[in-house]
Structures are given as structure tokens and as C-alpha cells.
Design a protein around this nucleic acid. Structure first.
Length: 983
DNA sequence: ACAGAAGCTTA
DNA sequence: GTAAGCTTCTGTT
């Protein structure tokens, strides 16, 4: 080997397992021999050799070897007997394939290297060193992190399954340390798969940070006392030995006395007949054919034996796709891209349903042809499109940006559609692909962002042009950051939600295109790739980006044509126009504002939680005498109910022991001390992982605030949902959990105001079911659960035992959830009989509620949906199911939906009006968050007293004038510096 | 890398 | 018994 030569080292053992798992499990030869992994291995090897040869600028190997593990016992087991001890035996059907894969390697004419007492990784390390000393380069074909320590100037890695090169920058990006420090990093983190202990509590992030700080492992261990974090310091000091032995285990041995030298690895051309002989034996028909072609192996030799196989293979070649005629195929003569007028001036006498049919006709006539879209690359063309949109009075658009988080997304391009089939894409900021160091240069022939927006802004803000988008809030937030206020608009996702909440199809573009247009749009991952090999949309080839983005705009326009008239046809226009559409800009502004979160408080809490959890962990290990993973319900269940034989175990539907909090609480009540500790441990780790550790990661670097994302069309009932992060489930029940709320703070000089509806769903129930006692109780401002208990059990409200009130409260909540004896019994931990009697008694005292429930079920069964008092529809297609439990579930859900949905509508109405009310009162308070029955505002300190009455008035009167409720709504509001005290 | 189960947080 | 979203573990792709 000499300078300029290039050695390929294939991690054969790693390959085997990846091929095995990546392929369908049941690949067998006709005689039953399992060959899935062999097949995957051969295909990958072939592709690797082929790719390497065909690449002009790629690396062409001069030397090539496949390295295997010899057996599971190596010198590492002498160092540390537990090494790889928890590794289970390979799957049954993989065992016979190990030998076959070695045969395959030889059939490829490649050296097959293994050595007793050493892992494949050690051999690889050794050959890397030898190649380097000889002046050659090496590429390791693997993605195993254990090999990353070898990466350097002359050694790279390549992951063939993801088509990804791994060099020094990739290692740093992935692990936060350069390759030479990978050993130290792995010594700290350990490896649960190989049973390398590491230091407990140190993960890759922490390890990288420590190595950054101290330089290397030895320095770190010597100066561990300087670490500030208590738990971390103690853990490292206590586990110094483990770290040292871990380092020995993960350090690859690069001086293995190898039998073969590099000269034995010189790459030869594949021996066609030899390889094909093997492949045919394996019955890999298509690879056999490809190899035959590529190696120009004598056709006669191959065909003679392979005829039968070849015919079987060809049989489905020409037929592919013939069984599935393209949907919506165009009639001859229908020109591609022939634009149809989007809007139809309704003639007099057109009924909504006739218009609906007309539009459907327009939207679905003319095929969707992604090749027919225009790429708008100069300002004059863009101006012509804007003029066209003005003429049409309508334009669907689709924004492309660098992130799914609209608060961080930078614009890449925008698609616009003015009529079915008539769509174009404006690229602003596409870059050339594989920009290694500088991210690639911006491509030519795009309209610079600033110039394009100057032309688009007047259109997007033009009152006489209706803008249409799918999930418009995302676009609204981005455009607002670029100084554009899009209006007026329609949102096809929201129209679908109003029409079809509760139906099995969702409201995403793909589902809607499939349902209404019979069309499957190009998938984003087909243009960007998926997983780690994916690229940003700005790296997508502009023609492909045009096809994808313009198609989305075209589809959006067509969906609008189909869906919008249906609103009128079904009498749902006012739901859309009052409860959905106006909320979009309101939520967009709330998301943009975000809320301040004090990272110091969270980090202090995180430390406290870690300490508490660590202490409990030790106590739990003491009690069970073993260091299991407490977070694994499987391991925990096996110990608790298997080995320790605790009573009262029950199984989940998958046959595992249940370790639910309820069950552990019951055991704790019987005097067992372990379950209590487990429940406590779970609480602490939950708070830490979900809140104190995760929230700081959501602080936006520019605004320094946390910006959640509200989904308007995610729930069936009309509630909003919150994600990334979810700020609708911040703890409140326990004192420990509430501390997290203290981290949500008002900026200096400001206060947070929290205003929440009191018992809104029960009030809605009292109103819709017309229950005189409940109406009176709410009118009197009485304790509703106490009144309920008093009615049911004939006890006076004065001096009522708390247990009695608790039961009544559970029943009241039960009604809202569509009560069942089973559920109530569970909730109250009483026999089902007793629960059943309670319900009976309740219905005797409140017959109106029984009537309400029966009426709701009958209505749902007849129509397939229920409605809120504001006319929102929620569909229950399974309400007529012959499956009794499915039917019962739908009945309960429909009962709940009227109440939950009405409450959701009320707070939506309040939110839509709130901004104007605050403006009129000249108040600077701004809405930040919504938590189903609560609104959180931030306002300057001096305006708190003036703000609260305005907020309360808007919320308490939100049902008016559409509905005059027979029960007053009541809002509690208060101000403080943080969310905990304000709530 | 992803999906589902289990578990836990909220209204 | 209703409605959500997130994390961890586990097994599969």
C-alpha cells in the first residue's frame, strides 16, 4: 500500500445486525432457509462496490476487506467479566446466516477477516493504523459510535444505509467532542448495550460539557472536586474506577497481531460466475441479474440455469402499475395546466348545494400535473402573477421556510395558485446542495427576498383579494415577522374542521387531498429525504421544490373550492366565521408574544429533583437488592410481583404486570414501603424530565421567551391543544409540581394576570339540561358539589362531612364525562353495585340530567353528530356500531362533547373579543396563554386593577348575544409576579 | 429511526 | 367515565 491508495474496511458484524433488522423478517429461500440478512448484506456490498466505482468525484477503493467478530469472548471479558454480559443470544433465524454471510464475502472475492480474542473493531483499528503508516487513506463502512474514535485526517466513516459520510465535523456535531475524545466521552457515558458501566447520571451532553471544561478524562477525574453540581460531582468521585475501566473497555486495540497484511486486501474485480453461482444458490434473482449485467458474465452461462428464475422475475416487471389506473385521469384534449376559473359567480337561483356541486366539478376537473407548474424567477413575472391574483380576487399560497417552528423559520420561497392547475413557485433563498463548510452558496435566478416581498406584500394585505392557505397560522406568524399582515383569508384546514370534526380522516392536506380530490400530493420527505440524510427545503433542487410547493398551493385552492360552499350548505358559516377564522390571528399574536420563563429557577429545581430522585433510587435499590432500571415498568413489574411476590398484581392488556400509580398507592396503603418510594421517584423524575429539563430548551434565543404552538384543529371537541412545549399541562396539583409554575414570570415592571372560569362545564350542563336546583345553586353562588350531595343524600350543607361532598363531586364530574358505573366505581374505589346505586339516586333527584343524556344519545344516533349551543358539530361515526363497548364509548364521548365543546366555544368567543375590549379601554394587557378555561395575560403593573374588570366582563359575557345562558358564568382573576401565585 | 405501550401531567 | 401532549422504555424498521 502506498500514498494515494484507499482502504475500505467493512464492519461486517455491524452490517449483519443492521441488515437483519432493516429487512422484512420472513425472507426465506424456497427450502425454508432464512436468508433475509444475507440478502441485505449482499445488496449493500454490491451497492457499495458499484457506488464507489461509478462515482466520478467519489472515493474509489484500492483495497477492500470485510471484518467480523470471531466470537463473543474477547480480552475485554478478562478486564471486566460483565462486558456484553447482558447481550442476549442472536435471534434464531439469524444464526444460520452468520456462516452464509462469510461465504458471501468470499463469493464477492473480498477478504474475510476475523481473529479469536478480538472484536472486529480492534482489527479495524489496527488496519487503520497500518494504512495510515503506509500513507494511505481509510474509509470504515459503519455507523457504529464505537468506531468514531478512529476518525481523523486520513480516516473517515461512511454509513451506506443513510448514504452519509462521517468525518471529524460530523462526530463533533453528533457528540460534541472531536474523535480523539470519543474514548473519554464513552468512558463517562458507558453503554447499556455492551454493559460498559460509565458514570451513572452522566449522559452524552453532560460528558461533552465536562470534557470541554476539563480537557480530558484524567484531568476531570483528578479535579472532580471542582464540579459545582452536587450530584454530578459525587457521582463522578464515587465512580472513578468505573470510568477508568470503561475507558479501557471502549478503547480499541490498534496493535492486534494480524495474520493478513494490507497487501492481501488489494481489490480485484468481482469474479462474475463465482458470485452469480452463490447468488443463484441463495435465490436472489434481481441481484443475480444486476451482477450478470454489470460483470458482462456470459449470458449463456447465466441464462441457462436462471431461465425459470428470470421469467418469474420478469413476470411482474412490465405489469407494475397496470393494476392501478391513475385516479382523475384527464380526458384527451384536456391540456395540461389549462387554468379554470376559480370562482363562479353564482347565478340567481343557485342554492348552496348546487354551487357546491359546481365548484366540486371545477376543482376536480383538470388533472393535477406537477410538471405544469411555473417557476417564477424574475420580478416582472412575479408582478404578472400578482396582477392575475388581483384579477381573480383570490389566491392560494403556501410558504416554504427553514423550520416547522414559525418563530425561528426563515423564508425560502412561496407558492401561489390563482386557479385550479394554475400555480407557480417563487424561490427566494435556495442554496446549492451539500454545502459542507459554508452551507452552500445561494443559487442564481431567484428573486431576492426583499424584492419579492415588496411585490407580494400589497397583494397579501389587499382587502379585495382573498388569501387561502392550509394551516394559515403558521404562515401568519412567519409573515408577521417579515412585517406583512395577511388579510383577508380563509384556511382550508379550519373549514374542514368545522365541517368534519370527529370523522376518521384528519384535516391535514394529505388527508383532505385524498378525500376530496382523490389525489396524493408529493410528500415532503420525497423531496427532502428523511431521517439523518434529509436536507433542508432550501437545499432542494428548485424544480423539485416548485413541483412540491406549487402543488400544495394548487391543492389548497382546489380544496377551498370544494369545501367552502359546503359550509353554507350545512349551515356552518357562522361557526367558521365567529369561532374559528378570527381566532387565527389572535393565536398567532399570542404565540409570537410567548411568556418569560426564569431559567435559573428551573435549573435550581432540576438540581433539587435530581437529588431527591437519587436518594430515592438508592433506597429503592436497597429494598429490592438489585440495581434495576426503575423507569422500566417491565423490569419493575417483574421484581415487584414476580420476584418479591407482592400481592394484588394485575396485568395490562399486553400481559405485563401493571405498575400504575393507583395500584402502587393501594399497596402503599397496605403498609408496603417500596411502592410509595417508587411513586415518589416517578413524580420527581417526571417533573425533572418533562418540565425543568425540557423547558429551557424552548426559550427562543432572540426573544428569550417561550413560544408554544396552539393547534386549532387537533381536538374533536373544539378545544385548543398546545405543543412544543405543551403549556396546557404545567403541574398544579402538588406543591412540588407547583414550583414549576413559579418559573413562569412577568417581565420587570409587569404582572401576570390569570383569569379562569369557575365550573364552566357544570354551568353549561345546568343550562342545557335545564336543571332547576343547579341553576338556582349557581345563581346563588353556592357550593355546587355540596348542593348536589345535599340533594342526593339528604344531608344539610352546613357541617357536611367532606367524604360525602367528595362523592357528589365525583358524580358531577362523572356526568360531564358521560358517566358509567364502572368508571365511577374506579374513581371512588367502591364496588360497581354501589356506584350504580349512586347514579340511580342522582337521576331520581335530577331527572333532567337523565333526559339530557338520553336525548343526546338519541340525537347522536340519528344524525351521527352532536352540536354545541353555538352550533359546532362533532361527529361520532361509530355511535351506531354493533360493538357494544365501542358504541358506549361513543355515547359517553358525545355527551361530553356537547359540554366540553360548548365551554371551548365560550372561551374562544372571549378570546376573539378580548383584544378589542382591551384596546377600547386603552389597556396594554396582552393575552399570552390559554389553558381551556383559563387565560393568562401580561400587563404593566399599574394597570392591573383596571384590567381585571375588563377581562372578567368579556369572559363572563362571552356567550352573548348568540346565546343568553340561564346560568351566570363566573370568572376568578388575580395578578402576581408568577403564574403560581396568579392562579 | 420510528411506533406503540405505559405512565403522568393538565382541564 | 371526557379531552389533550410528552418522556421513557421496548421492540421493530
Amino acid at each position: 500500500m502506498k500514498k494515494g491508495d484507499h482502504l475500505f474496511l467493512v464492519d461486517g458484524s455491524g452490517y449483519i445486525f443492521r441488515a437483519y433488522h432493516a429487512l422484512p423478517p420472513l425472507t426465506r429461500k424456497s427450502d425454508g432457509l432464512p436468508v433475509g440478512a444475507v440478502s441485505g448484506f449482499c445488496n449493500m456490498l454490491w451497492k457499495l462496490m458499484l457506488d464507489a466505482r461509478n462515482t466520478d468525484v467519489g472515493i474509489v477503493p484500492t483495497h477492500f476487506a470485510v471484518i467480523f467478530d470471531y466470537s463473543s469472548k474477547t480480552f475485554r471479558n478478562d478486564l471486566y467479566p460483565e462486558y456484553k454480559a447482558n447481550r442476549s443470544a442472536p435471534p434464531e433465524d439469524l444464526i444460520p446466516q452468520f456462516g452464509l454471510i462469510r461465504q458471501a464475502t468470499r463469493a464477492f472475492n473480498l477478504p474475510c477477516i476475523e481473529m479469536e480474542g478480538f472484536e472486529a473493531d480492534d482489527l479495524i483499528a489496527t488496519y487503520c493504523r497500518l494504512a495510515c503508516e503506509a500513507g494511505g487513506d481509510t474509509t470504515i463502512i459503519s455507523s457504529d459510535k464505537d468506531l468514531m474514535q478512529l476518525v481523523g485526517d486520513t480516516v473517515g466513516m461512511y454509513d451506506p444505509m443513510k448514504d452519509r459520510q462521517i468525518g471529524i465535523p460530523e462526530v463533533i456535531e453528533k457528540w460534541g467532542v472531536p474523535p480523539e475524545k470519543m474514548v473519554d466521552l464513552q468512558a463517562l457515558t458507558g453503554d447499556s448495550v455492551d454493559n460498559v458501566p460509565g458514570v451513572p447520571g452522566i449522559g452524552p451532553k453532560t460528558a461533552a460539557q465536562l470534557l470541554e471544561q476539563f480537557g480530558d478524562l484524567d484531568t476531570l477525574l483528578a479535579r472532580a472536586g471542582e464540579i459545582k453540581q452536587d450530584k454530578r460531582r459525587e457521582s463522578i468521585i464515587a465512580n472513578t474506577d468505573k470510568a477508568r475501566i470503561s475507558r479501557q473497555l471502549v478503547t480499541l486495540k490498534n496493535d492486534v497481531p494480524v495474520a493478513e497484511g494490507l497487501d492481501d486486501f488489494v481489490l480485484h474485480a468481482p469474479d462474475g460466475p463465482k458470485l452469480i453461482g452463490f447468488l443463484k444458490t441463495m435465490e436472489f434473482t434481481s441481484l443475480t441479474r444486476r451482477v450478470a449485467e454489470a460483470t458482462s458474465t456470459e449470458a449463456g452461462d447465466v441464462q441457462a440455469v436462471a431461465v425459470a428464475v428470470e421469467r418469474a422475475d420478469n413476470a411482474h416487471g412490465p405489469d407494475v402499475g397496470a393494476g392501478a389506473p391513475a385516479r382523475g385521469a384527464v380526458e384527451p384534449g384536456q391540456a395540461n395546466g389549462a387554468a379554470l376559473s376559480a370562482t363562479d359567480a353564482p347565478k340567481q337561483g343557485d342554492t348552496p348545494s348546487l354551487l357546491s356541486a359546481l365548484r366540486l366539478e371545477r376543482a376536480t376537473t383538470g388533472k393535477i400535473d406537477t410538471a405544469a407548474y411555473h417557476c417564477i424567477r424574475d420580478i416582472e413575472t412575479l408582478k404578472a402573477w400578482v396582477a392575475e391574483a388581483r384579477e381573480a380576487g383570490i389566491a392560494a399560497f403556501d410558504v416554504r421556510a427553514t423550520s416547522s417552528d414559525p418563530m425561528q423559520a426563515e423564508l425560502i420561497g412561496m407558492a401561489i395558485a390563482t386557479a385550479p392547475g394554475r400555480a407557480g413557485y417563487v424561490p427566494f433563498a435556495h442554496k446549492s446542495g451539500n454545502g459542507d463548510l459554508l452551507g452552500g452558496g445561494t443559487l442564481e435566478n431567484q428573486i431576492p427576498l426583499r424584492e419579492a416581498l415588496a411585490v407580494l406584500k400589497p397583494l397579501l394585505e389587499d382587502k379585495s383579494v382573498l388569501k387561502i392557505a392550509q394551516n394559515l397560522k403558521y404562515d401568519l406568524v412567519i409573515m408577521s415577522r417579515y412585517g406583512i399582515d395577511v388579510a383577508p383569508f380563509d384556511d382550508t384546514m379550519l373549514i374542514s374542521y368545522v365541517l368534519d370534526a370527529g370523522t376518521p380522516h384528519g384535516h391535514g392536506m394529505d388527508a383532505l387531498a385524498e378525500k376530496w380530490l382523490g389525489h396524493t400530493p408529493l410528500q415532503l420527505k420525497d423531496v427532502t429525504g428523511s431521517g439523518k440524510s434529509s436536507v433542508g427545503f432550501d437545499q432542494v433542487d428548485i424544480d423539485r421544490a416548485t413541483a412540491h410547493a406549487a402543488e400544495d398551493a394548487d391543492v389548497t385552492l382546489r380544496l377551498w373550492l370544494v369545501l367552502k360552499p359546503r359550509l353554507a350548505a350545512k349551515g356552518l358559516v357562522s361557526v367558521y366565521e365567529r369561532l374559528e377564522r378570527p381566532l387565527v390571528p389572535v393565536l398567532a399574536r399570542m404565540e409570537q408574544r410567548g411568556i418569560s420563563v426564569d431559567r435559573q429557577i428551573l435549573s435550581r429545581l432540576s438540581g433539587e429533583l435530581a437529588q431527591g430522585a437519587a436518594r430515592l433510587e438508592e433506597e429503592i435499590y436497597q429494598l429490592i437488592g438489585e440495581r434495576i432500571n426503575i423507569g422500566s415498568p417491565k423490569q419493575l413489574g417483574d421484581i415487584l410481583f414476580g420476584r418479591m411476590g407482592l400481592p394484588g398484581g394485575s396485568k395490562t392488556k399486553t400481559g405485563q404486570w401493571s405498575t400504575s400509580a393507583q395500584l402502587l398507592e393501594d399497596l402503599a396503603a397496605e403498609g408496603h414501603e417500596l411502592p410509595r418510594k417508587i411513586v415518589d421517584w416517578r413524580q420527581l423524575t417526571k417533573l425533572k424530565s418533562t418540565y425543568t429539563d425540557a423547558l429551557p430548551g424552548f426559550v427562543n434565543p432572540d426573544s428569550k421567551r417561550v413560544h408554544t404552538s396552539y393547534a386549532l384543529a387537533a381536538t374533536t371537541t373544539g378545544r385548543l391543544s398546545s405543543s412544543d412545549p405543551n403549556l396546557q399541562n404545567i403541574p398544579v396539583r402538588t406543591a412540588e409540581g407547583r414550583k414549576i409554575r413559579t418559573a413562569f414570570i412577568a417581565d420587570k415592571g409587569n404582572k401576570l394576570v390569570s383569569a379562569d372560569y369557575s365550573q364552566i362545564e357544570l354551568r353549561v350542563l345546568a343550562h342545557v339540561a335545564e336543571i332547576p336546583q343547579l341553576r338556582q345553586a349557581f345563581a346563588d353562588g353556592a357550593d355546587i358539589h355540596a348542593i348536589t350531595a345535599s340533594e342526593m343524600f339528604n344531608v344539610p350543607v352546613e357541617g357536611m362531612p367532606s367524604e360525602i361532598r367528595r362523592r357528589a363531586k365525583a358524580i358531577n364530574f362523572g356526568i360531564i364525562y358521560g358517566i358509567s358505573a364502572f368508571g365511577l366505581a374506579n374513581q371512588l374505589s367502591i364496588p360497581r353495585e354501589e356506584a350504580s346505586n349512586y347514579i340511580k339516586k342522582y337521576f331520581e333527584r335530577f331527572p333532567g340530567i337523565r333526559d339530557y343524556i338520553e336525548e343526546t344519545k338519541a340525537y347522536a344516533r340519528e344524525h351521527g353528530f352532536v352540536e354545541t349551543i353555538f352550533g359546532r358539530r362533532i361527529h361520532y361515526p361509530d355511535i351506531r356500531s354493533s360493538n357494544p363497548s365501542l358504541r358506549a364509548f361513543n355515547e359517553r364521548a358525545s355527551i361530553n362533547a356537547r359540554l366540553q365543546g360548548t365551554a371551548a366555544d365560550i372561551i374562544r368567543r372571549a378570546m376573539v373579543r378580548m383584544e378589542e375590549a382591551l384596546d377600547e379601554a386603552k389597556l396594554s394587557a396582552r393575552m399570552l396563554l390559554q389553558v381551556h378555561d383559563e387565560l393568562i395575560f401580561e400587563t404593566v403593573e399599574g394597570e392591573v386593577e383596571a384590567t381585571i374588570p375588563v377581562v372578567r366582563h368579556v369572559m363572563e359575557n362571552a356567550a352573548m348575544p348568540a346565546v343568553s345562558m340561564s346560568v351566570p358564568l363566573h370568572v376568578d382573576a388575580r395578578a402576581a409576579n408568577n403564574w403560581d401565585e396568579a392562579h
